[in-house]
Computed example of a mutant assay.
Amino acid sequence: MKTLTAKEVEVLVKEGKAADIIDVRETDEVAEGKIPGAVNIPLGLVEFRMHELDKSKEYIMVCRSGGRSGRASKLLESQGFNVINMEGGMLSWEGKVE
């Protein structure tokens, strides 16, 4: 599984290169703040909503600490998606939130 640190993702966001971020936290967690432009698909729904994703794109998976996004990354990888897990999750994120 490919990984990036929160700082590396923050640089990509600032450069406009991290357009496809999926936040797998629950809706109430996301309401407290998410990476600008991130799409919320709670972990329990990833399997049922993967048809909404494009296998030609690369997705950065995010959660609170990196565990749930790691599970989502493994699931999506097993289905042929190109994904990167953000290590440390939102606990490590120092960039802007919306």
Rank of each mutant, 00 (worst) to 15 (best):
A19V: 13
T5E: 08
L91K: 15
T3R: 08
G80N: 09
S78G: 14
N85R: 13
E58H: 14
E94L: 11
D20H: 13
E52T: 15
E15D: 15
V9R: 05
E98C: 12
G88Y: 05
N40Q: 07
D28E: 07
L53M: 10
G80C: 10
L43Y: 12
V39R: 13
G89Q: 04
V46T: 04
S92L: 01
T27A: 14
E58W: 03
P42Q: 10
S92M: 09
I21C: 02
G67W: 04
E15A: 13
D54E: 13
A6Y: 06
S73V: 03
E52K: 11
V39S: 13
K34E: 11
L4N: 03
M86P: 05
M1P: 04
E87S: 15
G70C: 04
V9K: 01
M61P: 02
D20S: 09
M61A: 01
K34H: 14
E26K: 07
G67F: 00
G70F: 05
L76F: 01
A38I: 07
A18T: 07
K7N: 10
V30F: 05
D20R: 12
K74D: 11
G37K: 02
M61W: 01
E87C: 11
G33L: 02
V46D: 08
I60H: 14
E94W: 10
T27D: 11
K17F: 03
S78H: 09
A31G: 01
L4D: 06
G95M: 04
A38M: 05
V62A: 14
S69N: 01
S92C: 09
L91T: 15
I35V: 05
R49A: 10
L76S: 00
E58Y: 10
I22T: 07
N82S: 14
K57A: 03
E47Y: 14
P42E: 08
G89E: 01
P42F: 02
M86N: 06
D20M: 09
I35P: 00
A72Y: 00
D20N: 15
M61S: 01
N82T: 11
E32P: 02
D23C: 06
G89C: 04
V24K: 07
M90H: 12
G89F: 00
V24I: 07
S73T: 10
I21V: 06
V39D: 07
V13T: 06
V46N: 03
E8G: 11
G95Q: 03
S65W: 00
V39I: 15
I21T: 00
V83P: 00
N40M: 07
E8T: 04
M1W: 04
I60K: 13
G67E: 08
G88S: 11
L91M: 13
M86I: 00
G16I: 06
G16R: 07
A18I: 03
R64L: 14
S65M: 02
T3S: 12
F81A: 09
G66V: 08
G80Q: 05
G80H: 09
G33V: 01
S78F: 00
I35E: 00
S65I: 03
G44F: 08
E15N: 13
R49Q: 13
M50R: 13
S56H: 10
I60L: 15
V9Y: 08
S65L: 03
N40K: 06
G70H: 01
S65V: 03
P36H: 07
L43G: 09
E47L: 10
T3E: 12
L45P: 00
M90V: 12
E32F: 06
